[in-house]
Nucleic acid binder design. Structure first.
Lengths: 166, 166
DNA sequence: CGTTGGTGCTTCGGATTCGAAGCAACTGGG
DNA sequence: CCCAGTTGCTTCGAATCCGAAGCACCAACG
């Protein structure tokens, strides 16, 4: 294990606490907006947005789970919910019968179009407005570094599944 | 309405997405560590930490809820859970019979001491390690600005109940 | 083909979360 | 004291979430 200090200095604590608080508040507010504008949870919105960005409007479940920080079972739950509302379709992949291909529907795109402006507005108002343009770039850069580092070094608990038989 | 653009440029999107992803991953990892080290949820840890920082080791429920971004009902749930485990005590406030004063116990402090090093380690490893010292300061500063702005201008829907006149 | 092990997703049980409604206590008139 | 309005917390019902276990399919090997 790397040698870590057992305390954080005030600046480090400040960065950590501010990150947690800002993201919590932002997420909370965004969630309310999405709920009001389109009766979507944040995760559902993220899934739709991701599908909408895809060239052919579809992804496998696994790809979606990797993109959104989310459990497989939770993803199944939300995908079913979206399917019931006609916002996505699900079908077994032709390549691999095990995997499910999720595809956004016209209706899904419409809803996305409907909720997007409000979503942008909230993000802009809460996160971007108080910052100078340069600070936005700095934020993107610094957090980008952190994200890349996190991705390249997945937490120790990313262990493979336990074997069924011993 | 303020005049908001209806799109975000790539830098803005980058800042937003990176923020969401970093905080999600960080929170997820921290949550696992706390669960393993002391069978605590993140919220429970935040509550204990806050109480531990208090001069007399106690706060009113409302103060705790304000500090942690959290619903009142969820706070009640977690406070009950902590009380059952003997990590805090709850008693009506002498000043105001309505309010409940939550106080951390010896046992609570012990648990805090036990889980803290691992918590620090995770934060350091995931968030701070990949950054230059200056970047940590910049992050703290920029996110601090955002937090202050959020606090000073709460979202329009932040009033579930009618507010007292000022 | 059949067996063995690995992968993708879902189901299941339980924990956590929220908002709304409810209860209790304080406050300011009459 | 009583009344109405406000505030602090809890209870309630429902939604959401996760990890573990399970099912179905694929790939490698003989």
């Amino acid at each position: 294990m790397t040698d870590h200090p057992n305390t954080l200095d005030p600046t480090e604590l400040g960065a950590y606490f501010a990150l947690i608080e800002v993201s919590s508040l932002l997420r909370h507010t965004v969630e309310q907006q999405l709920r009001e504008a389109g009766d979507l949870s944040y995760v559902q919105f993220q899934l739709l947005a991701r599908l909408g960005d895809s060239p052919d409007g579809s992804y496998r479940m696994t790809d979606l789970a990797d993109g959104v920080v989310y459990s497989r079972s939770g993803l199944t739950y939300q995908a079913q919910s979206l399917e019931q509302r006609g916002l996505v379709t699900r079908a077994p992949s032709p390549d691999d019968e095990r995997s499910t291909t999720v595809t956004i529907t016209e209706q899904g795109r419409d809803l996305l179009t409907k909720v997007f402006p409000g979503h942008i507005a909230v993000v802009h108002e809460l996160l971007l407005e108080p910052l100078a343009q340069r600070d936005v770039a700095v934020l993107a850069d610094v957090l980008g570094q952190v994200r890349d580092h996190m991705r390249s070094a997945p937490p120790r608990s990313a262990a493979p599944r336990r074997r069924k038989k011993g």
